[in-house]
Structures are given as structure tokens and as C-alpha cells.
């Protein structure tokens, strides 16, 4: 039932024992201890489990771990002192912190792909995540501070 697969995560080749039915989220959290990606709905609705795969944001709860074979996977643990993490700190863009990893991963992918994204693009991307604590105004300030720095 369980099988060994290899996943490239945060630039490292990792071997993981999984069921075919395991989601990438489960593999990350339970096999690799990468608990930054959070289960918030396990249904693709809230974005708390967002990781970056081949440069695009992906909800790791609606992806099988086996689908990750041969792909570059980045989790929040793979980010180190990036501008968006700093911006989240400076703008108080989180409270409980549970949705934060997912938001940061989505923002980070957005910045990399569209460093000068306009509001409508930012909104299109960031509507994929839910935050229950903040008012989103703080998150808006965080992403804007980073986008304007880049452009």
C-alpha cells in the first residue's frame, strides 16, 4: 500500500513513504515534518496549504503526493528572509498565523511572476486564500509594499 517516492522539496531530493491516495499536504506534514502548510479545509477552498510548484501556487490538499514527482516544490520552509515575509512582519499582516504560510506562498509566487502586478491581478490571485483574523487591509499593504519596491 505504501510506496517510496522521491520528491524535490526546497531544492533537496527527499524520499517519502506514501499511499497513492495521500495528498501532497499529508506527505509534507506527516512524512517530512514540513508543517508550515496547514490543513484549513482539505478541500481546496481556503489556501492555507499553498505551496509553490514550478513557480505557480498550488493548494497541496488538492494534489496527490505522486503528482509531485519530478517537480520543483517549494514550501514556506524553503523561503528565507524574502521581501514578502519581511512585509508581512512590518505591516502586521497576520494575527493567529494559521493562514500566513499559504498567503505568503501565494504572494511570493505572484511577485516572482508579476513583480509589477496591478490591483486586479493581485486581487485575482489573493482571493484564493482566506484569513479570518485580519481585515485583509494589512495583507494588501504588505503585498503592495513589496510590489512597489520591485517596480
Amino acid at each position: 500500500m505504501n510506496r517510496q517516492i522521491h520528491l524535490n522539496i526546497n531544492g533537496e531530493e527527499k524520499s517519502v513513504y506514501i499511499r497513492n491516495a495521500d495528498t501532497l499536504l499529508t506527505a509534507l506534514r506527516e512524512q517530512l515534518g514540513l508543517t508550515g502548510a496547514k490543513p484549513g479545509c482539505e478541500n481546496g477552498d481556503c489556501g492555507a496549504c499553498t505551496v509553490i510548484i514550478e513557480g505557480m501556487p498550488q493548494k497541496s490538499c488538492i494534489m496527490l503526493a505522486v503528482e509531485g514527482i519530478g517537480k520543483q516544490i517549494t514550501t514556506i520552509e524553503g523561503l528565507n528572509n524574502t521581501p514578502i515575509q519581511q512585509a508581512f512582519l512590518e505591516k502586521w499582516a497576520f494575527q493567529c498565523g494559521y493562514c500566513t504560510s499559504g498567503f505568503i506562498m501565494n504572494c511570493h509566487a505572484l511577485m516572482e511572476k508579476h513583480p509589477d502586478a496591478e490591483d486586479v491581478v493581485v486581487e485575482n490571485w489573493l482571493q484564493s486564500n482566506i484569513c479570518r483574523c485580519t481585515s485583509y487591509q494589512e495583507i494588501k499593504e504588505a503585498i503592495h509594499s513589496v510590489l512597489s519596491k520591485n517596480s
Binding site: 508550515g36 508581512f88 502586521w92 497576520f94
Partner: peptide
């Protein structure tokens, strides 16, 4: 003063631990 929350760094790096994050 607007002193940043003391657990802030853990929360932006994915290192902050919540109940479901603990398993053995």
C-alpha cells in the same frame, strides 16, 4: 507603542506550531 508580536518571526517562516502539527 506598536511593538511587533513576539512570535511574529515564527509565524512568517512556517515554524510556528499548532496542535495538529505535533505528531509522534
Amino acid at each position: 507603542k506598536s511593538i511587533p508580536r513576539i512570535e511574529a518571526e515564527d509565524k512568517v517562516t512556517g515554524r510556528a506550531k499548532y496542535t495538529a502539527d505535533f505528531s509522534s
